[in-house]
């Protein structure tokens, strides 16, 4: 079961969730530099830690998507003028 491929539709939903979680993590991480209130900052840090854990778990499952492919070191084409 652990290594079984995922169904098409669940892979697509994982794609949505992983992108959403990635954005959330980036935002919570960066916004910590902008907040004033200590409690809010602590809660954001908690969210960062939970999100990192969750994102790692999602990535591990996403490896079983039917469209899985080797991941390169960088984006293939740099966006230049």
């Amino acid at each position: 079961m652990e290594n079984q491929k995922l169904a098409d539709h669940e892979s697509l939903d994982l794609h949505e969730i992983i992108n959403f979680k990635t954005l959330c993590l980036a935002k919570s991480k960066l916004m910590q530099g902008l907040v004033f209130d200590h409690d809010l900052r602590a809660l954001m840090q908690k969210d960062v830690e939970q999100s990192m854990q969750a994102l790692g778990e999602l990535q591990a499952v996403y490896k079983r998507a039917p469209f899985e492919a080797p991941v390169p070191q960088n984006r293939p084409t740099p966006i230049l003028n």
Partner: peptide, 11 residues
Amino acid sequence: VALTESASPDV
């Protein structure tokens, strides 16, 4: 929403 579309038990 993703849960309503997922079929694999561990997912």
